[in-house]
Simulated scan of single mutants.
Amino acid sequence: MSNIKQDPSIRNLLNRMPEEVQQSFTEEQLSHLKIAIGARQWGVHAVDCRGVVRLFKYRYYFVLLAGRNRRQLSATEKKASAIAQATVVTFVFFIVLLFIYLLKSALGINLFEGFSLGIWTYFKSLFL
Rank of each mutant, 00 (worst) to 15 (best):
V44L: 00
S2P: 05
F99I: 11
K78I: 08
E19Q: 13
R70M: 05
Q22L: 07
V63R: 05
D7V: 01
V47Y: 01
R40Y: 06
A106V: 12
A75W: 09
A86P: 01
V44P: 00
Y61P: 01
R59A: 07
F56V: 05
V44K: 03
W120N: 05
R16T: 13
L117A: 07
N12Y: 12
K5Y: 08
S31F: 01
Q23V: 07
I100C: 07
K34S: 02
L55G: 03
L73E: 11
K34I: 01
T87V: 09
L97R: 06
R70V: 06
L30G: 00
Y58M: 08
F123C: 03
F112W: 14
T76R: 14
F62V: 08
L107I: 11
Q22P: 06
I95E: 07
T76K: 15
S31T: 09
Q22F: 07
N15I: 04
A66M: 06
V47G: 02
F62S: 05
R54N: 11
L103V: 14
I10A: 00
L14E: 03
T87H: 11
V96K: 04
Y58D: 11
G38W: 00
P18Y: 10
I119W: 03
W42P: 07
G43N: 03
L14M: 11
E113R: 15
L14F: 07
I109E: 08
I4K: 01
E28K: 02
F62T: 10
R16G: 14
L126R: 03
R59D: 10
K34C: 01
N69A: 08
L126C: 03
S9L: 15
G43C: 04
N3Y: 06
Y122I: 14
A75V: 10
F115T: 11
V52W: 00
D48K: 03
R16N: 15
L107M: 15
F93P: 02
A86Y: 08
G67H: 01
L73W: 09
R40H: 06
C49T: 13
W120L: 07
A75H: 12
V52P: 00
L126S: 01
A84K: 10
G118W: 03
G67W: 00
I100L: 13
T76A: 14
T90R: 08
I119N: 02
I4V: 05
L73Y: 09
L30P: 00
V96N: 06
S24W: 07
M17E: 08
A84I: 06
P18V: 10
K5C: 07
L117N: 11
L73P: 03
C49Y: 05
G51F: 02
M1I: 08
I83Y: 10
L117D: 13
N12S: 14
L73F: 11
E19F: 11
S24T: 13
E20H: 12
F94A: 04
W120Y: 15
L13H: 07
A80E: 13
I109D: 05
S81Q: 14
A82V: 06
H45C: 12
A86S: 14
